[in-house]
Design a protein around this nucleic acid. Structure first.
Lengths: 133, 133
DNA sequence: CTTTAATGTTAGTTTTTCTAACATTGCATT
DNA sequence: AATGCAATGTTAGAAAAACTAACATTAAAG
């Protein structure tokens, strides 16, 4: 994952917006937004004075919720879908990790072949096998 | 200019943030932020209820102001520097425009040459000259 | 026809922001 | 040293925004 993606992820998860701004951005009522929080679909931060502060990610999530509701999906369904999405995200991270592991092994094999080509038989092929499966 | 740049420009100039958030992001006092507005270095929007609403661009500008002040530059200097920057930006847009004008002329010439190659002497070269200088 | 999920509405309170005025601080200039 | 000014602090009182909690409405589902 690039450094850029990490820092933009940071920015997007930064609690910046009061509920009024979020209402305008999403065209949801304060009641709706608080209700979705009550059902744990979003977890806005709180200011020192207990005011909700929302991130851009929260806004995205709220727009998704709005979309799903308009499609006739109820809260329970949305909750389930979000859970699945979270799991999928975890699995995709795991997949990414596995890919980069296999990538690492491929690179090691490649390097070993090069080593063999350049200084033939200075190292027996089996000697590196314990490093890359 | 890409569509992406335009839309991110839109996002960055969107008045989203209350002064409290901006105080945290910039570590400036409300007094300072209002003072800089008073001197026309930023022009935050206002909510219906007259609360200032700041954009991410405003935050950037405030951070620049803070930097310059810490470098010992006074308000007058900062104002002048910002004016220069604005002019530079305008000139760069003009330069860009001129480049694309000359580009346009280049393309027209190129097309004319092609036309000449494919249907020789159906059009005299001078006949298009009024269209591209 | 009841239930219930989602949302509206209201009241009373707390937090945030506003303006305007006066106070402080630290440099320059005389 | 005294003065003036730029930048910022501080305060008071008012207005707006947001909070919780409770009760009300509505539309769909059984």
């Amino acid at each position: 994952m690039s450094e850029n993606k990490k820092s933009s992820e940071l920015r997007r998860s930064m609690p910046l917006l009061p509920i009024g701004t979020v209402m305008q951005l999403t065209e949801l009522s304060a009641r709706q937004i608080r209700y979705y929080e009550e059902h744990d679909l979003i977890q806005p931060h709180r200011s020192e004075g207990n005011r909700r502060m929302f991130s851009l990610n929260d806004v995205d999530t709220l727009l998704e919720i709005k979309d799903m509701l308009e499609q006739g999906i109820n809260m329970a369904g949305i909750k389930k879908l979000f859970d699945m999405k979270k799991n999928a995200a975890v699995q995709s991270v795991q997949a990414e990790k596995e890919i980069s592991d296999s990538e690492l092994r491929r690179i090691l094999r490649e390097e070993m072949r090069n080593a063999n080509r350049h200084q033939k038989s200075s190292l027996r092929q089996g000697d590196l096998s314990r490093f890359y499966q």
